[in-house]
């Protein structure tokens, strides 16, 4: 190696040693990584099952209250009860009107659900329980119509379809409002919470042991053997 070359190497080494080791910096500028494939309309159609309150996404088809009764008795009544009254702890689908402000609110399709789509979309994706996405579109419309009828929202002759969608008016549509905690619970923000003598001496007013609903160890599965 020539002297000059040696000097060059030394300089390079010196720079290499002096240069700080820099980690790769996370780059947040949007970039197309070329990862993933285009979803085809055919692929999307198979999974695109959501329905909005305005009926967008609802499939073609139609179903009457009368046809729905048969589907319902066949596939739903065992859990939800013949009249939507519920069997055991399964969700109750009908009645409950006027109970929301009471001590025992009963939340059903008729008393609580704000939109037809909230029911229809749910049945479409997850019912019958254990046999999801098995109903034909006509059965789906029919059974939904029947559940509406159980709640006196539509009459016995009603036929549900995309065309009649907007005629369904859910009783509790106006029963909801957006989260307002930052306004109505403003008092919970307090940079200087009380530390001393914050309240009168405290008394016990309720005992969980008296309620006696805590599961005992016999109901629990053990860890891995």
């Amino acid at each position: 190696m020539s002297r000059l070359a040696r000097l060059g190497l030394a300089v390079t080494l010196l720079f290499a040693l002096a240069a700080p080791v820099r980690a790769q910096v996370k780059d947040d500028t949007p970039r197309n990584y070329g990862v993933g494939r285009v979803a085809t309309p055919g692929q999307i159609a198979g999974w695109d099952i959501d329905v909005r309150p305005d009926g967008r996404g609802a499939p073609p088809g139609r179903g009457s209250v009368k046809d729905g009764e048969k589907v319902y008795l066949d596939k739903c009544a065992a859990c939800h009860g013949e009249f939507g009254e519920s069997a055991g702890r399964w969700p109750q689908l009908a009645q409950g009107k006027g109970t929301l402000a009471s001590h025992d609110p009963v939340k059903t399709v008729g008393s609580y659900f704000p939109y037809l789509s909230s029911v229809f979309d749910y049945i479409r994706r997850s019912m019958p329980f254990g046999d999801a996405e098995s109903l034909s579109n006509d059965e789906l419309y029919a059974v939904t119509a029947y559940v509406l009828n159980l709640n006196d929202i539509v009459d016995d002759k009603f036929v549900l379809s995309k065309e009649t969608w907007s005629r369904v008016k859910m009783p509790n549509q106006g029963g909801f409002f957006d989260d307002d905690r930052e306004k109505t619970e403003k008092a919970f923000w307090n940079s200087n919470p009380c530390m001393k003598d914050c309240r009168e001496p405290v008394k016990i007013t309720g005992h969980a042991q008296a309620v006696d609903v805590t599961p005992d160890e016999k109901t629990q599965k053990r860890g891995v053997e």
Binding site: D50, R52, P53, L100, K107, V109, P114, S117, S118, Y122
Partner: peptide
Amino acid sequence: WFTREETSKYTDL
């Protein structure tokens, strides 16, 4: 979407 899980459930009465 006002799905069942954000209307009938997970709303605070």
